[in-house]
């Protein structure tokens, strides 16, 4: 089958406020359209509160959402419990914190065997399959009988990756999979994910706050702000010539490990005053980035921009996009 592996139409997440009848909700994810191509590494970047985790979880139907999600041609928001359970084995998630995403009372072997049982692997084969998975993520078979507490953060994240792979998924959504790890260990885990993606032909959605990291590894990058996708396009284009002023701000905010460039970054940051995200309770009428944006005009404050094609590739939601020539 061809076409995108995942096609999302008007996916919307509302978080309820308070309780009772007539309770209002806030928009955690504004109506979003997105395609994830087979075999690609799509990165979703944004800061806290941008909706990147909400999008990742809604995509796998881990949280209630409106709209439509076509996974390999099957719409999954309308699926019943039983059909959904079958689809679930084809889409897996890796969470940020390997200290809380593994059950501390279950051995690694038991964690993996339960998943293997769920996808119908006969009891007699489970141990061998689990040990094979462990070796694929760079751990020895001696990890099998041990509890998560025997492992370092990087090793635990490898166990979480093995668990995600145990169902033989087509799609893996990794939500900040290396943010909790030491710097020298982060690159090892990223390399493992890249290797596994290549070996198994996985499609991967990599959620991160680190535009520098995903610029190096992603095929495409989607940038989120205030629950909206504000720019999406080829990774090289976004990091070289961003179209949305917010993407440009993210690009310019990371101090690189070089003294002259990092000091210039700091000078620029010192010039911008303290700015806050708009309130979700009282969302602005126009572009949510307008209050922080040096290019904002009257139309930005009145009309929210929709995603439009950018001449250099990808889509951007901005009335005054950058780098159009």
């Amino acid at each position: 089958m061809t076409g995108p592996l995942v096609q999302i139409e008007n996916l919307t997440v509302r978080y309820p406020l308070g309780g009772g009848l007539g309770a209002r909700g806030v928009l955690g994810l504004a109506p979003t359209n997105l395609e994830v191509q087979r075999g690609e590494l799509l990165a979703i970047v944004g800061e806290s509160g941008s909706g990147k985790t909400t999008l990742g979880r809604a995509m796998l139907r881990l949280i209630p959402a409106e709209g439509a999600i076509h996974f390999d041609g099957t719409e999954i928001i309308g699926l019943g419990r039983r059909e959904l359970a079958q689809m679930r084995s084809r889409m897996q998630m890796i969470f940020q914190d390997p200290y809380s995403s593994l059950n501390p009372q279950k051995t690694v072997g038991r964690t993996l065997s339960e998943v293997l049982a769920h996808v119908g692997i006969p009891r007699a084969e489970r141990r061998a399959r689990a040990e094979e998975l462990l070796s694929q993520v760079g751990l020895g078979a001696d990890a099998y009988p041990r509890l998560p507490r025997a492992f370092s953060g990087g090793q635990r994240q490898r166990i979480a990756i093995a668990r995600a792979l145990a169902t033989g998924p087509d799609l893996v959504v990794a939500d900040e999979p290396v943010s909790a790890l030491d710097v020298s260990v982060q690159a090892q885990v990223v390399n493992l994910l890249l290797d596994l993606k290549a070996e198994r032909g996985l499609t991967m959605v990599f959620i991160s706050h680190d535009l520098g990291l995903v610029s190096a590894i992603a095929d495409r990058i989607g940038v989120m702000y205030f629950g909206r996708l504000v720019e999406i396009g080829p990774a090289a284009r976004l990091s070289r010539s961003p179209a949305h002023p917010y993407t440009a701000l993210l690009n310019d905010s990371m101090p690189p490990p070089s003294v002259a460039a990092a000091r210039a970054t700091l000078e620029a940051a010192a010039q911008t005053g303290a700015v806050e995200l708009p309130s979700l309770m009282d969302p602005p009428r126009g572009c949510p980035f307008a209050p922080r944006c040096g290019h904002a005009s009257a139309s930005c404050r009145e009309t929210p921009p929709a995603l439009h094609p950018h001449p250099a590739g990808g889509l951007v939601a901005c009335h005054h996009p950058l780098n159009t020539d």
């Binding site: 890249l194 520098g212 190096a216 590894i217 490990p257």
Partner: peptide
């Protein structure tokens, strides 16, 4: 030196990030 290389986050010719083997 290894930390500065790792912090520059770039893929090498083999499509992999520079790493420091082992762990702290």
């Amino acid at each position: 030196g290894d930390m500065i290389t790792a912090a520059s986050v770039a893929l090498d010719a083999g499509g992999r990030l520079a790493t420091i083997p082992g762990r702290p």
